[in-house]
Design a binder for these strands. Structure first.
Length: 597
RNA sequence: GGUCUCGUAGCUCAGCUGGAUAGAGCAACAGCCUUCUAAGCUGUGGGUCUUGGGUUCGAAUCCCAACGAGAUCACCA
């Protein structure tokens, strides 16, 4: 039983005995005692004052006396207004640290083949342009959520649906064909996804010029957009693709191949990966047949123009198109197909889509449609809806070139990390190889932490002019603390100090030290909550609190110079346990921690 | 217009399942390295928690309204 439960139990008993007031232990409100007061844990006594028919202070006093007499973990108390501050026995904390030290996987729950399975879809790029900062948030969240769910005992299958077909890809293909002069990643030295992205922009520019010309000839903007030769050509290409035209398919395979090679590099550098990748070109036909089945079963209906629709007005939504009049599929159709194939492939207990909040409506509809098609899991799918990354000027727009490119940003971060290390002279004794590795860890750590520390549901702002910090509430600060602890532990090992052994419970430890243990002991609950709420930010904020607290301890106390041997070993054990939790926690965020920096 | 988010220090964010004088970081200013890594530590200044009502012993937190910002309601994905 953890401390919270022990105290809740004891308080529940106390008010029952003292005031015949019956309450569930879980109902008892506890909080961390504020720093300015004596004590470790505080009970809010207001809820009992009515039953006690006493002042808050009086009731607090009586409950406090009862607790000290009847609970072996509570050593003292004081009452301030309606707050009963409890001091916990020092031996309890040391015992707790001994347990934490002994548990290599502290904070995580292992899974096995019988554990429930969660499939998590994230990333899901289009193959017509390179990844940008918005995708970085998606990828980091998806990966981190996956790690967090694993730590909560789920089997996790990370999946990616690649949007590899459609008009957007044809645009890049057409522009390359018309203006590309046979350029390839090899001939230009460009990453494949960037090369394809370049032609997507080329298309857009040329298209806009055509629109302008047509408008000068008297067309309305709408007409011009529809009738621009480039657009007509792109649509022709899409049709040819659907009809398996050999030349178009060939070009499509080639250019997508370039993009995949580029994406693979970006994913690798970001440190994310997938267990199973689906391609829209493989799933959209399944979607079509599912929709046709739905029509046959009368849950969807066909209009006179032969397009197929779902009527969602009974659910308070609109009507939704599922197949165009010409029989081609839309986004929703493909998602239905993908969902079916996934459930055919895996025994999924929970399906999670990591997709931006701009698609809230889409997933509301998808859930209803799957339900109508008879899939009992339709209603229970989870849309993990996260907020947009915005620039100070507003939204990023690919076609207007206002995006922050993923590859560029990562490279800049790593470069900054390297420069900083050099300026501080931190890595003067390291090999070039080590320097490169540490700069990579720290640069990416800064970026990942910057993204993951904010509540995923909220929009966030990124200002390219102000580079991401390396001081304060940042990834490098946490990594630094880890490296610092490791350095002390190395020195201890050099001195042949035998730490890591159980500590004698009778030693006197400080408030700061017991508070650190208290913080450590809260880690499993944070992991659990992060899993329930799908929030890496909780892990990030917890780790920051822990690390900040530790740095104060590090500053105010000596470890290796402590003369009391037992106390010295206690502090080494405490430091080691904190390093362990830092590493586990950062691992849940996909952030590596260096041994030195 | 309908639906849904959001509004906390100059900036970026915590706190939101109601509880003590609302917290960090950055930026500004002032200190701390002969001592375990100063990417650190300490201090100063900075707030009508958008506004107005309501519920409550108690509201940044819950409810209602207004104002402001954003998303969505595509035969784009």
């Amino acid at each position: 039983m953890n401390l919270e439960a022990i105290i809740q139990e004891a308080v529940s008993q106390a008010v029952s005995v003292l005031y015949q007031f019956e309450t569930e232990p879980a109902q008892i409100q506890l909080q961390k005692t504020k720093k300015e007061f004596e004590g470790d844990v505080t009970v809010v006594v207001f809820p009992f004052v009515k039953a006690a028919r006493k002042s808050p202070e009086g009731a607090g006093q009586e409950i406090g006396e009862y607790l000290v007499q009847n609970s072996h973990v509570i050593s003292a108390f004081n009452v301030i207004k309606g707050f009963l501050n409890l001091s916990i026995n020092r031996t309890y904390w040391i015992d707790l640290l001994n347990n934490i030290s002994a548990n290599e996987k502290f904070g995580t729950v292992a899974s096995d083949d019988n554990s429930p399975l969660m499939m998590i879809e994230y990333s899901s790029p289009n193959t017509n342009k390179p990844l940008h900062l918005g995708h970085i948030r998606n990828n980091l969240l998806g990966f981190s959520i996956s790690e967090i769910q694993k730590a909560n005992g789920w089997q996790v299958v990370k999946t990616n649906i690649v949007n590899d077909r459609g008009i957007h890809i044809c645009k890049s293909m057409l522009a390359w064909k018309l203006f590309g002069n046979g350029e390839t990643p090899e001939s230009t030295g460009m990453k494949g996804d960037h090369l394809v992205g370049k032609y997507y922009v080329v298309f857009d520019k040329a298209y806009k010029t055509e629109i302008k010309e047509l408008m000068e000839k008297g067309m309305t903007e709408e007409e011009a957009k529809k009738n621009a030769p480039l657009m007509l050509e792109a649509q022709k290409m899409l049709l040819a693709w659907e009809q398996n035209d050999a030349e178009v398919r060939q070009l499509w395979e080639t250019m997508n191949g370039w993009v995949y090679a580029g994406f693979d590099e970006t994913y690798k550098e970001l440190g994310v990966n997938f267990d199973k990748i689906y391609y829209e070109s493989d799933t959209y036909l399944t979607g079509k047949s599912e929709v046709e089945r739905g029509e046959a079963e009368k849950v969807f209906y066909r209009r006179d123009d032969s397009s197929v629709w779902a009527d969602l007005t009974p659910d308070g939504l609109d009507e939704k198109l599922l197949l165009r009049a010409d029989g081609t599929s839309v986004y929703m159709t493909q998602d239905i197909g993908t969902a079916k194939l996934r459930y055919d492939d895996y025994k999924i207990d929970k399906m999670v889509y990591v997709v931006g909040n701009e698609q809230n409506y889409h997933f509301q509809v998808l859930s209803l449609l799957l339900d109508r098609l008879g899939y009992e899991w339709g209603k229970s799918l989870v849309h993990f809806s996260y907020g947009m990354v915005e620039l100070p000027e507003g939204k990023m727009k690919s076609r207007e070139g206002t995006v922050v490119d993923a590859d560029d940003l990562m490279a800049e971060m790593i470069e900054t990390a390297r420069e900083t290390s050099q300026e501080l002279g931190k890595l003067d004794n390291c090999s070039e190889e080590e320097i490169r590795e540490i700069a990579r860890m720290v640069g990416l750590g800064a970026l990942k932490y910057f993204i993951l520390k904010v509540d995923p549901r909220k929009n966030m702002t990124f200002n390219p002019k102000e580079s991401i910090d390396f001081n304060g509430n940042t990834g490098p600060f946490i990594q630094y603390t880890h490296a610092r602890i490791k350095s002390v532990l190395r020195k201890a090992a050099d001195q042949r100090i035998n730490f890591g052994t159980e500590i004698d419970k009778t030693i006197e430890i400080s408030e700061k030290e017991s508070y650190l243990i208290q913080l450590l002991s809260g880690f499993p609950a944070v992991v659990r909550q992060a899993g329930e709420e799908f929030s890496p930010a909780l892990i990030a904020n917890y780790t920051y609190d822990l690390v900040k607290e530790y740095n104060q301890f590090y500053h105010d106390f000596s470890i290796l110079r402590e003369e009391n041997e037992t106390l010295k070993i206690f502090r080494l054990n405490l430091s080691e346990a904190i390093a362990k939790v830092i590493k586990t926690a950062m691992g849940l965020l996909g952030i590596e921690v260096p041994e030195r920096m």
